[in-house]
Computed example of a mutant assay.
Amino acid sequence: MAATKRAPAGAAVLRGDITAAIRNAVMHELAEVGYGRLSIEAVARRAGVGKTAVYRRWSNKLEMVLEIVSGVAERSVPMPDTGSFATDLQLTMFIVSKALQHRIASQIIPDLMAEAARNPKIAETLNKALRTHQTALSEKIVGQAIERGELPKGTDPELAVDLMLGPLYWRLAVLRTPVDDDYLEKVAASVMTSLGATPPAS
């Protein structure tokens, strides 16, 4: 008779549903009270678990928030591939603007940006996540446009992404002013002009 395989003595078996509940609770707590007032006790209470369940996964509040926020921030953003830089640009700006106006993200992002000025670890985490998105956009949307001849070969990919997304972060994350389709169209047109974009070669 084969012996039943057991987990090593003393090994913690972390249930996925509990981890998911804690992650969800952290995001909602961050949105409601901010990082400064967030506590392990409040997170555990919202998740419907004991504090020990949280401490089995993370040793402190900073570690918990950094891992969870990093996981959310580094999720892949849909990259349009319509065959036209103009349309890719408009869709990208629409997607990002909707993400920044999400009821939870719109509360968390400004708060963490403020915390980043005081906490180097939070600053590093946010910078890494943003750079990941910038690199992906540079390689996909800007790179394709250069290959199709819609953008000059000497176009700086990072500068192009700054021009594309900078106004959205400024309006939505800093000024916290809603944007509409008309604003997105005007910014997209300005970006096209600034980058010297031309229609795709026939």
Rank of each mutant, 00 (worst) to 15 (best):
M1E: 13
T4F: 11
K5L: 15
A7F: 15
G10W: 04
L14I: 15
G16Y: 08
G16L: 08
I18R: 14
A20T: 12
A21N: 05
A21G: 02
R23K: 13
R23T: 07
A25D: 04
A25Q: 04
V26C: 07
H28M: 13
A31F: 10
A31D: 11
E32A: 14
Y35C: 05
R37S: 08
I40C: 01
E41V: 12
V43M: 02
A44Y: 02
R45H: 08
A47N: 01
V49A: 04
V49D: 07
G50N: 12
G50A: 11
K51M: 11
K51C: 09
A53C: 07
W58T: 10
L62V: 10
E63N: 08
V65M: 08
L66K: 13
E67Y: 04
I68G: 01
S70K: 12
G71T: 07
V72P: 00
V72G: 00
A73F: 12
E74N: 15
M79Q: 15
D81E: 15
G83S: 10
T87G: 00
L89E: 07
L89Y: 04
L89P: 03
Q90F: 12
L91C: 02
T92H: 11
M93A: 09
M93E: 09
I95R: 08
I95F: 13
S97G: 09
A99Y: 07
A99D: 13
L100P: 03
Q101F: 03
Q101H: 05
S106H: 07
S106A: 11
Q107H: 06
I108G: 03
L112R: 05
A114V: 14
E115S: 10
A116T: 06
A116Y: 03
P120Y: 02
P120E: 05
A123H: 13
A123N: 13
T125Q: 14
L126Q: 04
L126H: 03
N127A: 14
N127H: 14
K128M: 05
A129N: 06
T132S: 09
A136R: 15
K140R: 15
G143W: 02
G149D: 09
L151R: 00
L151N: 01
P152A: 09
K153Q: 15
K153H: 10
G154N: 12
D156F: 00
P157S: 01
P157C: 00
E158T: 14
L159P: 01
L159A: 10
V161M: 00
V161H: 01
L163S: 06
L163I: 07
L163F: 10
M164C: 05
L165T: 05
G166Q: 11
L168E: 13
Y169I: 10
Y169P: 04
Y169W: 15
L172P: 06
A173N: 07
R176F: 00
P178M: 07
D181N: 09
D181T: 12
D182C: 02
L184M: 02
L184Q: 04
K186S: 14
K186M: 13
V187C: 08
V187L: 06
A188V: 10
A188T: 12
A188G: 09
A189T: 10
A189I: 06
S190Q: 14
M192E: 13
L195P: 03
G196I: 13
T198H: 11
P199Y: 07
S202W: 09
S202E: 15
